[in-house]
Design a binder for these strands. Structure first.
Length: 439
RNA sequence: GCCCUGGUAGUAUAGUCCGGUCUAGUAUAAGCGGCUGUCGCCCGCUGGACCCGGGUUCAAAUCCCGGCCAGGGCGCCA
């Protein structure tokens, strides 16, 4: 088929911007054919763009042969341009239709698509991920990533307003042992290097200069995790603040979450409706329960966890039923948290680390950090880590490290909460896990 | 890495327990034809599938073993 060039055509309106009141007005529309309903003497073409759909109506006897032959060729997913006239009518859901004067076909599509973009025949997640570029054309997925956009936009705006500076720390790092999670190794010229699992050490160093920093970016964990809430590559929203403690950053966090919920509610009601998801604007402050209280609650429900251990997933599910909303878990056993979390001055067995939970899902992890080099070295040793591997990081503590605190939001999990999706992969454009490296 | 469940046309599924009219059903998508108000349009026709390898058996989509893959759960996980 001979394809058309865009030439001097430029879009005048997105589908959503066309209104019945524009009756008689000429518009230029770009997008994709979502569906063609051919009734013989009349043909209905549903044009989709990133904002939605509208109906292009082709009455056989009333249009030029050139427009007719173009519309004859149209099939699902063809990329097209339509120059036409808006006509007010009661016969379409949106109260108007567009009568084409000229149609351009920019690109064709294979007749048998791997998934049904109009959503009539559902496909499994695996099938959808294998055809992800096409899957992402579905209205529902566009809605998910618009919600993510609004969430990130809101977080940035709010943090900027609070005086935070956005930074970019290295993804390629030398140290293999920050403790805990396994890292991916990469060839780095003649050396071995690793992909960063978090910006933790860098953002702590930056509070000495920039005081309040944040970073949004991908991080990597080479874990065996095979669950619907873990991914080898994920987006973290990290902040770190000088001259602050856990309570300060918890307040910042709950305000951030509240702003996000409010913004998504106000700006993305259409997308939430598409996803059949509801987001309430939470009241502040969020409930704060201590680790001890969580264990006590669990014991009452028959799940006994020895003091000092991390709370396993099944127990978190129980906890999520007891507290079916946002809640902080505070005062964790010091040795259950990372080496840089500050132990409490009045009881060093417990630390100033916290998790923000949404039901059973850990959305955010944070805490007051250790500002004393001596204590940090002690904690590294207790964790079985070699302080020598942290030479450069520890040096920063010789130059006036202020008291500081911070947190990290798992962006995908936040989006799961907002969209009601139950698998992290669904809210990740191109998910990466142990078994999936493509597309 | 472990446990459970599963893998059938482009997609989603029925059939599998209890092997044999399964020549593998249905929906949707696709191709062709028809239809002037559809909006999950409708009607007719056509083509299209048992994950891979081995075994049991007269006979395997169906039973057994191995592999690969998927979903869920667990563990791991700043």
């Amino acid at each position: 088929m001979k394809l058309d060039a865009i030439g001097d055509w430029r879009r005048t309106h997105y589908s959503v911007e066309v209104k019945p009141e524009m009756d008689g007005e000429e518009v230029t529309l770009f997008g994709w054919v979502q569906e063609v309903r051919d009734l013989g003497g009349i043909r209905f073409v549903i044009l989709q763009d990133k904002e939605g759909t509208l109906q292009v109506t082709v009455p056989r006897k009333k249009l030029s042969s050139e427009v007719l032959s173009k519309s004859d060729a149209l099939q699902k997913r063809y990329s097209i341009g339509v120059k036409g006239v808006v006509k007010k009518t009661e016969m379409t859901p949106r109260g108007f239709e567009v009568l084409p004067k000229e149609i351009k076909i920019f690109s064709t599509a294979t007749p048998q698509l791997p998934i049904d973009v109009s959503g009539k025949t559902p496909a499994n997640l695996e099938t959808r991920l294998n055809a992800r570029a096409l899957d992402l054309c579905r209205e529902e997925n566009i809605a998910i990533f618009k919600i993510q956009h609004t969430a990130i936009e809101t977080i940035r705006e709010f943090l900027f307003k609070c005086g935070f500076i956005e930074v970019y720390t290295p993804r390629i790092i030398a140290s293999a042992t920050e403790g805990g999670a396994a890292l991916f190794s990469v060839d780095y010229f003649e050396q071995k290097a690793f992909l960063a699992q978090s910006p933790q050490l860098y953002k702590e160093q930056l509070v000495m200069s920039l005081e309040k920093v944040f970073e949004v970016g991908p991080f990597f964990r080479a874990e065996e995790s095979h669950t619907r809430i873990h991914s080898s590559e994920f987006i973290s929203v990290d902040i770190e603040q000088a001259f602050a403690d856990a309570e300060d950053v918890m307040q910042l966090l709950e305000q951030t979450i509240q702003h996000v919920c409010k913004a998504v509610n106000e700006k993305r009601s259409k997308e939430l409706a598409i996803l059949k998801s509801k987001v309430e604007v939470p009241e502040l402050p969020f409930k704060r329960i201590t680790y001890d209280k969580a264990l006590y609650d669990l014991k009452k429900k028959g799940a006994e966890i020895p003091w000092g251990e991390d709370i396993p997933t099944p127990a978190l599910r129980t906890l999520g039923k007891i507290h079916p909303y946002f809640y902080f878990i505070t005062d964790w056993p010091t040795h259950s948290k990372a080496f840089y979390i500050k132990p409490r001055d009045d009881n060093p067995d417990v630390c100033e680390g916290f998790d923000l939970m949404w039901r059973w899902l850990e959305l955010v992890s944070g805490g007051t950090r250790i500002a004393s080099k001596e204590l940090l070295v002690k904690r590294l040793e207790e964790k079985g880590l070699n302080p020598k591997s942290f030479k450069y990081h520890l040096e920063a503590f010789d130059y006036g490290m202020p008291p500081h605190a911070g947190w990290a939001i798992g962006l995908g999990r936040l989006i799961m909460m907002l969209t009601g999706k139950k698998n992290l992969r669904e809210v990740t454009l191109y998910p990466r896990d142990k078994f999936r490296l493509t597309p």
